[in-house]
Amino acid sequence: MPAKTSDKTEIPDEDLGPVADETANSARRVVAAYATDADECRVLLSMLGIAPGDA
């Protein structure tokens, strides 16, 4: 079955909320485990908005 595609993939900023600390910490551990190096980990965490120090 082909992947579902749509032009309506944008989520308005006002619909986004902060990620719970526990969820962000778990996501950081997963990203760190699969990143090939520290730079890749930093970039991925930044892209996800869960880099250490992000509020």
Rank of each mutant, 00 (worst) to 15 (best):
A33S: 12
I50N: 03
P18Q: 12
M1Q: 11
D54H: 02
L44D: 13
M47G: 11
D54N: 03
I11K: 03
T23F: 05
D7C: 01
E14P: 00
A27G: 04
G17S: 12
D7K: 08
R28Q: 04
L44N: 11
V19A: 05
E22W: 09
T9N: 01
M47H: 08
P2F: 02
R29K: 15
P52M: 04
D15G: 00
L16Y: 00
V19I: 11
V19Y: 02
A51M: 04
L44C: 12
V30S: 09
A3D: 10
E14K: 03
A20G: 07
G17L: 03
V30I: 13
P12T: 04
D15T: 05
P52D: 08
S6Q: 06
A20F: 00
I50G: 01
A24L: 06
S26W: 05
V30D: 04
G49P: 01
S46H: 14
V43S: 02
N25Y: 10
D37E: 14
K8P: 00
G53P: 07
D21V: 03
I11M: 03
M47K: 10
E22K: 15
A55M: 12
T23R: 14
A51S: 09
P52T: 07
E14M: 09
T23S: 11
P18W: 12
V43I: 13
S26P: 01
T5Q: 09
K8C: 04
G49I: 07
R29T: 14
A24G: 06
T5A: 07
V31N: 04
A38Q: 15
N25Q: 15
D21T: 03
G53N: 12
K4Y: 14
A51I: 06
L48Q: 04
A51C: 05
P12V: 03
D39S: 13
C41H: 14
T5I: 10
S26N: 11
P2T: 03
T9F: 09
C41P: 05
A51F: 04
G49W: 00
Y34R: 14
C41W: 04
P18E: 13
L16R: 06
T23L: 14
D54L: 00
S6V: 00
D21W: 02
A35N: 01
R42I: 05
K8T: 08
V43G: 00
P12K: 08
D7N: 06
V30G: 01
E22T: 12
V43M: 10
T36L: 11
D54E: 07
A24I: 01
D21P: 08
G17W: 00
T9D: 00
A51Q: 08
G53L: 06
R42N: 09
I11E: 00
T23K: 15
S46K: 15
V30T: 14
R42E: 09
A3C: 06
T5E: 07
P2G: 06
A24W: 01
R42V: 02
S26T: 13
E40A: 08
L16A: 03
N25H: 15
D37C: 13
M47R: 15
A35L: 05
R42L: 09
D13M: 11
A24H: 00
D54V: 05
P52G: 05
K8G: 02
A55S: 13
K8Q: 09
E14R: 05
D15C: 10
M47Q: 14
L48W: 06
K4S: 08
K8H: 07
L45F: 07
A27Y: 02
D39W: 11
D7E: 08
P2R: 13
